Amino acid sequence: MLRGWQITGLALLAGIALGGYVQGLRWSADVAERGQKASDEISAGQQAVIAGQAFQFQRFNEIARQANQYGINIRAQSDEKQRVYRTIIKCEPASRRCVPDDVASRLLDYTNSLRASAMHTATGKSDAASVSAITTACRLTYAQAVYWIDPLLTVIDQANSQLSGIREIEGSRNH
């Protein structure tokens, strides 16, 4: 038979064991809860990054679409101006006069250097067929120069619009 102090000792020992077991369960629950909170925080952070990137992509696409639409609009305006200029120049006798050779040569050389820098495979030399067509009595007439002006301004305007879009994108990326 068990004596009173033995029963008390066993009950005390059982209480301690039961308390340790409950405490262990509580610690495990706390660890699991902290792990879940950390996982939730990581997930929320990832969702915020993904949402931010999606917003940036949407904004970048909108800026690119606006720049493209602007380019289409100014190209259409330029084409209309070209038709008007061609009509006016047909009747203008001064349009057949030659631009001085040094100006025409500089313009041609600069055009070829721009083309060569834009086209990595190009050597910068003119096509023999185009040179023979140019080296007639006149390298460039005033009418031809006028025909170049508006398309040139249109291309510059398009490039400036694209650069403005890039600056806007970079500005929004930095903020």
Rank of each mutant, 00 (worst) to 15 (best):
W27S: 12
C91W: 14
L153T: 03
N68G: 01
I134Q: 06
T123E: 10
D79K: 01
D79L: 15
S78Q: 15
G15P: 02
V84G: 03
A11L: 14
Y147K: 01
D109V: 03
G20S: 13
G171N: 09
G165T: 00
R115N: 11
E168P: 03
D150P: 01
C138F: 06
T111G: 11
R26W: 03
G9Q: 12
A51F: 05
I42H: 06
A94Y: 04
Q144L: 06
S164R: 01
D102R: 09
A116E: 14
A143D: 08
F57L: 09
T87R: 15
L13A: 15
I166H: 02
S126F: 08
K90P: 00
K81I: 13
A64K: 00
V155S: 02
L18V: 12
Y142M: 06
I89F: 02
D157C: 00
Y70S: 07
A129W: 05
R173E: 09
S113K: 10
V103R: 07
Q162R: 10
P100C: 06
E41A: 14
V103E: 05
T87K: 12
H175D: 15
G20R: 08
D109M: 04
I134M: 13
D102Y: 10
D157Y: 00
L114Y: 05
L163I: 08
V31N: 04
I42G: 05
R96D: 06
Q53L: 10
A133W: 07
R173Q: 11
D127A: 10
I63V: 15
P93E: 12
E41I: 10
L18E: 10
G24D: 04
Y110V: 00
E168A: 13
S172E: 15
T135H: 14
F57Q: 15
D102M: 10
T154W: 05
Y21D: 08
G9A: 15
A128P: 06
F55M: 15
R34L: 12
G71P: 00
D102A: 10
A54P: 01
E168L: 12
K125F: 12
A44Q: 13
L18A: 15
G20W: 11
G124R: 07
A38L: 11
L10M: 07
N73I: 03
S113P: 00
A29Q: 13
Q58Y: 10
L13P: 01
D101F: 09
L2Y: 09
V31H: 02
K81C: 02
A67M: 01
P100N: 04
G45E: 14
S95C: 03
A44G: 04
N61P: 00
Y142V: 01
S117D: 08
G4A: 13
Y21R: 01
A145F: 07
M119C: 10
I16F: 11
T87Y: 14
F60E: 07
L18Q: 12
Y110L: 11
I72K: 09
Y85P: 00
T141V: 07
A122E: 14
I50R: 07
S132M: 12
I149A: 13
A11T: 11
A51C: 04
R173G: 06
